[in-house]
């Protein structure tokens, strides 16, 4: 007979944290570069803020609108009021999703992702995440990460968007 206190998973947590940081900045960038992302954010109320992260204690990514502009607010859930949380049930599942082994849709159908907040907002956020993934990832991986890869987008549009999103993400502008 023994009593055990659960240990940690620092490596997977670090991976997830880095990816959330990158994705958060990429969303901020995409809102400036891509019309669709911008349009989607426009449907959301002012000061709307959402968080994506893992139970029970992170890491998290907080993104929201501030004075009409989309901003990545870091990983602290307490930094401002949050209207919607996309919650991954555990760090292993977060790793599966953020290492693109499971798409957002697939993870949802596998009960790995829970929504805490209004469903319409969650759907907007998922659409935004899908577009950002298309920009960030090579086609081969992105077509696994989204339900339908937008192969009808003109090549120039995709390339320009990709360059824009990457530059701004890396520079943090």
């Amino acid at each position: 007979m023994q009593e055990i206190h659960a240990g940690g998973k620092p490596l997977k947590k670090a991976y997830v944290a880095i990816f959330l940081w990158f994705t958060g900045r990429a969303i901020q960038a995409a809102a400036k570069v891509d019309k669709e992302v911008k349009k989607e954010f426009d449907t959301l109320p002012d000061e709307f803020t959402f968080a994506l992260g893992s139970l029970p204690n992170g890491p998290w990514m907080v993104v929201g609108k501030e004075k009409g502009k989309v901003k990545y607010f870091g990983g602290n859930l307490k930094c401002r009021p949050i209207h919607l949380r996309l919650v991954i049930k555990n760090i292993e599942a977060a790793f599966l999703i953020l290492s693109f082994q499971e798409s957002t849709a697939l993870a949802t159908t596998r009960n790995r992702l829970m929504t805490d907040g209004e469903v319409p907002y969650a759907l907007s956020v998922i659409r935004i995440l899908d577009i950002v993934e298309v920009y960030l990832l090579p086609k081969l991986i992105a077509s696994l990460a989204v339900k339908r890869y937008p192969s009808w987008w003109p090549f120039g549009h995709k390339l320009a968007g990709r360059i824009g999103v990457y530059t701004r993400t890396l520079l943090g502008i």
């Binding site: 007979m1 023994q2 009593e3 055990i4 206190h5 659960a6 240990g7 940690g8 998973k9 947590k13 029970p56 204690n57 555990n90 760090i91």
Partner: peptide, 17 residues
Amino acid sequence: LKNAFGDSGMTFGVFDE
């Protein structure tokens, strides 16, 4: 099974006899 609790912050007992 023990590893599956990783990062959960939970305490649990194991009787394995």
